[in-house]
């Protein structure tokens, strides 16, 4: 929830944000009316992907940056499904 509060404050101050989180956090984040959310199917504590899987981490970040640029309204949520390894 900490990061959800930060996203809301940043947006109120004109800084666009995108949150990258593991899917387990969806229920908690969704109710916070957040601007942009990329959800990943990975174990908690590893939201970008597996250790030393640079290609996978990169794909997750690219999805986040794409949403940062293209989202048109609050509540923009994307689920990615790249393999963990």
């Amino acid at each position: 929830m900490s990061v959800g509060h930060i996203a809301r404050a940043f947006e109120e101050n004109g800084i666009p944000t995108v949150i990258v989180a593991t899917k387990a956090f969806r229920p908690r984040l969704e109710v916070m009316s957040l601007p942009r959310l990329v959800l990943t199917p990975y174990p908690m504590g590893r939201p970008l992907g597996a250790p030393n899987n640079a290609a996978g981490q990169r794909q997750t970040l690219l999805a986040a940056l794409d949403l940062l640029e293209t989202a048109e309204s609050n509540g923009s949520i994307v689920e990615v499904d790249y393999p963990y390894r």
């Binding site: 929830m1 908690r28 601007p35």
Partner: peptide, 15 residues
């Protein structure tokens, strides 16, 4: 983790 917490908002800002 299927239950939301108390921190819920009806709407939110967007930049």
């Amino acid at each position: 983790y299927s239950k939301p917490t108390q921190w819920a908002y009806d709407d939110g800002p967007f930049a």
